[in-house]
């Protein structure tokens, strides 16, 4: 019994020591070499999920970089922002997508989005490890191993450039809006109450961390809401979203483009605009920016 216990403990200890050492070493190498540098003229960035990724065409907006990534939640937004601010002191304004769906419980599951943990593993803080390990220990261990493999591949290929793999403008050509509108039933009068929904428990904390980081670095943080269709069901969360925003992020400027004038054909689906909508919006956004400067 003693020998069995000893051997089993030895086996697992060696396994976990090996994993931790590999994570630590490879993270260290990548951390010291990771390149998040933007062009020197870029002083504004936008972060968030597929909404801003398909909305802000950064080739039409001066000094601006779209680093939103479809499916991104605030957890990864924070990690991205932290590294970007470290290496780009010229950044003075950060736009962050904030809409009713980003405050819901569903966002917490996006922490486990495919490939994200291995991609961002070198930039995790202890709290990030703790959060993932305690919410799904088995999946966390799996992701750690995948992270080691990803790190080793990066080191082997001398690939430390991150800017191209953390987001960018998404040129969406397709439009399924008419087919979708034919099938959806939207009740404009319906408004969910707090008791009807579950709010994000973990991910939203990272939006707060982004706000704190922005303040700490003296960066202008602005929440934006990308345009969406008048029949998009996120409108049914409007009252509670506004109440939540005022209660938790009342001091953060909020640019609300949900009702930006976009034709049906400029939508991909009720919650995303396509490249035509993005062009219209980005040209307008550029003009407004120039006016304000």
């Amino acid at each position: 019994m003693k020998a069995f216990t000893k051997k089993t403990i030895f086996f697992f200890s060696l396994l976990y020591i090996g994993i931790l050492a590999s994570v630590g070493l490879s993270n260290g190498v990548i951390n010291s070499k990771a390149n998040f540098k933007l062009e020197p003229n870029i002083n504004k960035i936008v972060l968030g999920n597929s909404h801003p990724a398909g909305t802000f065409n950064d080739s039409l907006i001066s000094n601006f970089k779209n680093l939103a990534d479809p499916g991104d939640c605030y957890f990864y937004g924070y990690l991205k922002l932290k590294e970007l601010l470290k290496q780009n002191p010229q950044i003075d304004t950060v736009f962050i997508e904030f809409n009713p769906k980003t405050i819901l419980k569903w966002e917490d599951s996006k922490l486990w989005r495919k490939h994200q943990i291995p991609n961002y593993l070198p930039f995790f803080e202890w709290q990030d490890h703790y959060l993932l390990a305690t919410s799904n220990a088995l999946a966390y261990q799996q992701e750690l191993i995948k992270g080691i493999v990803k790190n080793i591949k990066r080191i082997k290929e001398n690939q430390y450039q991150y800017i191209d793999s953390i987001g960018g403008f998404r040129h969406v050509t397709a439009s399924r809006i008419h087919a979708i509108l034919d099938t959806i039933t939207y009740n404009p009068k319906k408004q969910y109450k707090m008791s009807d929904i579950q709010l994000s428990e973990y991910d939203i904390k990272y939006l707060k961390k982004m706000v704190a980081l922005g303040k700490d670095k003296n960066i202008q943080l602005i929440f934006v809401r990308s345009p969406y269709h008048k029949k998009f069901d996120a409108r049914n969360y409007e009252d509670l979203f506004q109440a939540y925003r005022k209660a938790h992020f009342g001091t953060i400027p909020f640019l609300d483009f949900k009702d930006f004038n976009v034709d049906d054909l400029e939508f991909k689906d009720p919650e995303h605009i396509n490249y035509k909508g993005a062009r219209k919006f980005s040209v307008w956004f550029e003009k407004q920016s120039l006016k304000n400067e």
């Binding site: 486990w112 799904n136 088995l138 999946a139 261990q141 799996q142 750690l144 191993i145 995948k146 493999v149």
Partner: peptide, 8 residues
Amino acid sequence: IFLFSKNE
């Protein structure tokens, strides 16, 4: 097992 397994 860790590398190739899907979520639980």
